[in-house]
């Protein structure tokens, strides 16, 4: 599937991906993305009518563990790598008015 990628499309994808692409870089990123999409167009050669997607290769299935409580991270361990914390919580910028 040939796709034409423009600056608006890159802006939208970057927004979804929570990445900031500078306005000046949008055309370059669009061209790069278009090149990769041209490469993957080779998939159009394959007839996949009626073929179910293979999402995960494990034919053995998942191995759920018994539903019992295990010790996890302590609060101190969970916060140990936090960029900012306050009163035992992760600190973020204000999100409500």
């Amino acid at each position: 599937m040939a796709v034409r990628v423009d600056a608006a499309m890159v802006r939208q994808v970057a927004k979804l991906a929570k990445l900031s692409v500078a306005e000046a870089d949008l055309p370059t990123v669009a061209r790069e993305l278009e090149r990769v999409l041209a490469l993957v167009a080779v998939l159009d050669e394959v007839d996949v009518t009626g073929v179910a997607p293979l999402i995960h290769p494990h034919a053995h299935g998942l191995q759920p563990r018994p539903d019992v409580v295990h010790a996890g991270l302590t609060q101190a361990q969970a916060l140990a790598n936090a960029p900012a914390q306050l009163d035992g919580c992760f600190l973020t910028p204000r999100v409500v008015g």
């Binding site: 599937m1 998939l43 394959v46 996949v48 179910a52 293979l54 999402i55």
Partner: peptide
């Protein structure tokens, strides 16, 4: 057109 198509080709 992209992700699921790739997964179908993955099965092939």
């Amino acid at each position: 057109a992209f992700y699921l198509k790739a997964c179908r080709v993955r099965r092939k």
